[in-house]
Design a protein around this nucleic acid. Structure first.
Length: 412
RNA sequence: GCGGGUGUAGCUCAGUUGGUUAGAGCGCCAGGUUGUGGUCCUGGAUGUCGUCGGUUCGAAUCCGAUCACUCGCCCCA
């Protein structure tokens, strides 16, 4: 088509799409607010190390998906690929350890240089929450319940399911990792190329392989639950019991793992089958080691992020736009502009066309789905009145200018 | 990053075995006279047929490259 195309994987959101997008954002923020979360707005770019150090040097995000560039002073800058690292950086640089526990909500664009697909973009948007400073599994329960409530408020309760797993603490995870690598190394001849690669970079990922041969090997692999120490086992049990107590249904999914290095204990995903290959709609977990790994005071944390575009696609209906009041003059110089101004200042959404006769202006009023029309005619104005027409019923009445706002109130 | 599919007006699409000025529906604009919409009738505008290059007397139709979208893989929200 035109030479002027948006950059691959980016989109303009307008009209219906933008309303769906905003609805997801607003419902998420409102739900988070009820759980005591306040908003944090961090920059959309950070020094590259903020991401490369926290996400793991070998992760896909760091090795091939970051938008990185040198700024004018030569510093390496990266457009944020996710939200947690920036929040963690803000926590440390802002000395927020004085305010624990800290409950933060964020929203905004994220950038990943991936091959676009349905529900997968290069600039996409997330809402997310982080709860910092609480070791207790109560935090995990609260954060997951918040996610579930937000999804329910969006009408998605029946479209998603919650998968839950534990990665154990560092000790359990290390022990299991060794056992798993030991087991898988015995089958290198049968594993797929992808899984041999995973074995090097992120062995737990092999558990989630879709390759049939891999699945056969994985079927006999040791289970993480066998390697959990008492503390980790107890932690996971408390999370499950807590979720049951607040009525959030979860399925334990032993093969659910996380791609990013900083996770421990709880890992969870809300998934759907409605988005093709992109099933994950909201995902997160516990990251007790992250803040200290970045050089801050040891601080536990748990959080999740959800893709706004993915949620937006699942919405059953598009929120309707405002229904304005149309101001329609039947001739020039009838004071339409001052009247529109007066109504706007009184709080009405007012549509005022720029040209055309009455017929055309009424047509336009339909197009913008106006609820009512205030029609200015010379005869009525001579009596200090205007005609107010209910555009749904077609009823019209003459209203004295002095009481216009009052009579218009029902069309708001 | 890898593999498959697609790409014609704002939108959804049609375009016969390559053959003159590329079509439909919806939408848009204008009219159906003097101050009233959503229906109806009539008329009108709009496309570098994604882009670039090649084959041919001639290409929207064939070939190549490229870009974008789309499905799957990797990975992820």
């Amino acid at each position: 088509m035109s030479v002027l195309q948006p950059v691959r994987g980016t989109h303009d959101l307008l009209a219906e799409e933008s309303r769906r997008h905003r609805r997801v954002e607003e419902v998420a923020f409102e739900t988070a607010r009820r759980y005591g979360f306040g908003e944090i707005i961090t920059p959309i770019f950070e020094f590259t190390e903020v991401f490369s150090r926290t996400l793991g040097e070998t992760s896909d995000v760091v090795t091939k998906e970051m938008y990185t560039f040198a700024d004018r002073s030569g510093d390496s800058i990266t457009l944020r690929p996710e939200g947690t690292a920036g929040v963690a950086r803000a926590f440390i640089s802002g000395g927020l350890s004085q305010h624990l526990p800290l409950k933060l909500f964020y929203r905004g664009p994220m950038f990943r240089h991936e091959r676009p697909q349905k529900g997968r973009l290069r600039q996409f948007h997330q809402v997310g929450v982080e709860l910092l400073g609480v070791e207790s599994p109560q935090a995990d329960v609260e954060v997951i319940a918040l996610g579930a409530q937000m999804l329910a408020a969006l009408g998605l309760k029946d479209k998603v399911r919650l998968e839950l797993n534990t990665l154990g603490d560092a000790e359990s995870r290390a022990a299991y990792r060794d056992a798993l690598v030991g087991y898988l190394s015995g089958y290198e001849d049968r594993l797929s190329k992808d899984s041999l690669d995973r074995l090097q970079r992120n062995p737990l990922r092999v558990l989630d392989s879709k390759d049939e041969a891999d699945k056969a090997v994985v079927a006999g692999a040791p289970l993480l639950t066998e390697y959990l120490n008492d503390a980790s086992r107890s932690f996971f049990e408390q999370v499950q019991a807590g979720l049951a107590a607040v009525g959030v249904g979860a399925e334990v999914s032993p093969r659910l793992v996380r791609g990013l290095d900083y996770y421990c204990h709880t890992a969870f995903e809300f998934t759907t089958t409605a988005l093709g290959a992109q099933g994950t709609v909201l995902a997160g977990g516990r990251y007790d080691g992250l803040i200290s790994q970045m050089g801050g005071p040891a601080t536990p944390g748990i959080g999740w992020a959800a893709g706004i575009e993915r949620l937006s696609m699942l919405l059953d209906e598009t929120p309707s736009a405002d229904r304005p009041v149309a101001v329609i003059p039947m001739g020039a110089d009838l004071g339409a502009l001052p009247l529109a101004q007066r109504l706007r200042q009184a709080g009405f959404a007012v549509d005022l066309g720029y040209s055309g006769n009455v017929k055309k202006r009424l047509n336009r009023a339909n197009k913008v789905n106006a609820r009512a029309a205030v029609i200015l005619g010379e005869d009525e104005l001579a009596r200090n009145a205007v005609a107010v027409r209910d555009l749904d019923s077609g009823e019209q009445e003459e209203v004295p200018l002095a009481v216009l706002e009052e009579r218009l109130a029902r069309f708001r």
